[in-house]
Computed example of a mutant assay.
Amino acid sequence: MGRESFAIGQVRVRPGSRKDVELPITRLVTGGDVSLPVQIVHGKYDGPTIWVSAAIHGEEVMGVEVVRRLLATLNPKHLHGTLMAVPVVNVLGFMTGDRYLPDRRDLNRAFPGSPRGSLASRIAHLFMEEVVSKCELGIDLHTAADRRANLPQLRGDLDDPRTYGLAKVFGAPVMLHAKLRDGSLRQAATEAGSMVLLYESGEAMRFDELSIGTGVAGIRRVMAHLGMIEEVVEQPAAPTLESRESNWIRARGTGIFQLECELGDMVESGRRLGRTSDTFGRGGRLVRADRDGIVIGLTRAPIVNAGDGLVHVAQITSTDG
């Protein structure tokens, strides 16, 4: 007996096929409809159902390209299980390059949402009902916030053995234990019984091949581990570093910041990471590492104020060898 068709919204997708689905969100003042775009890749053979999502913050475009390239590698006639691909969750923010929705709400603080709440709450509810409720695992793709950059890293609950195992399989340069944030997709999905891996890499409104390639390869490794695809998947270039704690080194004063480190640098406590000074180069103040670790994030803003995060350093617990 073959697999059943996959139901989403008012649509059913036959085994061994793929289909684009538009889930209605709202109507613009001009009368045009806004929908959540989802592509269902419903495998011919039985297997797990997972989702991959991106652009829950509208300016975080890197993940959209990861989803696009991932889909290009999949053949539903050979796939075991089902992939729900949601390249743009915050459709309205994505169209304007804005992190937030038009009402300035952060969609990733609106989960699990409500069918009668704010626009953010309604989108969150739609995503939970039509995507999360059907899946046992989700991979959510993010980048750094505006004027920051992140090293490819996998975040999740590393105290959960299955999450820990899949984080190692993903093979990002760093896996970071991350607490759940109230209102986030990861918190709501976890409470609903799904496991979530959060991939962070790159910069807002930018594509870069390291972030994209690491994301596509990592998702494919997870899918291969789950038995969804059979293709030989390239292994990571280096072992994954594990971190249980990370902190931003912050500016102690206002000035122009000259960065003297890069993403992925291994630093020792006391190492010089940069220097702040005024517009004439006077009043220089050195910025030094206050712990040993690896640089997983940094600012791209040359002008900083006291308290601004400059360099994000993760302390290394162990190496996945």
Rank of each mutant, 00 (worst) to 15 (best):
W51A: 06
R181D: 14
D159L: 04
P76Y: 12
G202L: 04
S35V: 10
E60M: 07
A144G: 00
G321K: 13
A72S: 15
L70P: 02
L107W: 04
I8V: 15
A224G: 07
T317Y: 01
R162N: 11
M1V: 14
I139Y: 03
V216Y: 01
E4M: 08
G297N: 05
E268A: 15
V66T: 12
A192C: 09
R181S: 14
P239F: 10
T317Q: 04
G31T: 07
S121E: 15
L28W: 00
M205P: 02
L23G: 08
M266Q: 13
E260W: 00
G321N: 14
Y199K: 08
T240A: 06
D265F: 00
D278G: 06
L180G: 04
G165N: 12
P115V: 07
D20Y: 09
A124C: 10
R12K: 15
V61Q: 12
P102E: 08
R99M: 05
L210F: 04
V64T: 12
S211H: 00
G156S: 14
P152G: 00
P115T: 12
A314I: 10
V11Y: 05
I303T: 11
D292P: 00
A192D: 06
V232L: 12
P37F: 13
G284A: 15
I256M: 06
I50H: 07
V66K: 04
R282L: 06
L210W: 05
D140L: 03
R162Q: 14
N108R: 02
S118G: 06
H177R: 13
E234C: 02
K77H: 09
I294L: 12
S243R: 03
D159I: 04
V233R: 10
R104M: 14
E136R: 13
R104C: 10
D290C: 06
E65H: 14
E200S: 09
D103A: 12
A192F: 10
D98L: 11
R3N: 14
I296G: 03
G43K: 08
S211V: 00
G93L: 02
V169G: 10
E191Q: 15
N75L: 10
I249Q: 05
I219R: 09
V132C: 11
E260D: 11
G93E: 04
M223I: 01
I219W: 01
V21S: 05
V89C: 02
V174W: 02
A85F: 06
S211W: 05
V34S: 12
M175T: 09
I316E: 01
D290A: 13
N75V: 01
N247A: 14
N75T: 11
A237P: 01
L298P: 01
S184H: 07
G255E: 03
A124P: 08
A124M: 02
G213N: 15
I294F: 05
S184I: 01
E262N: 14
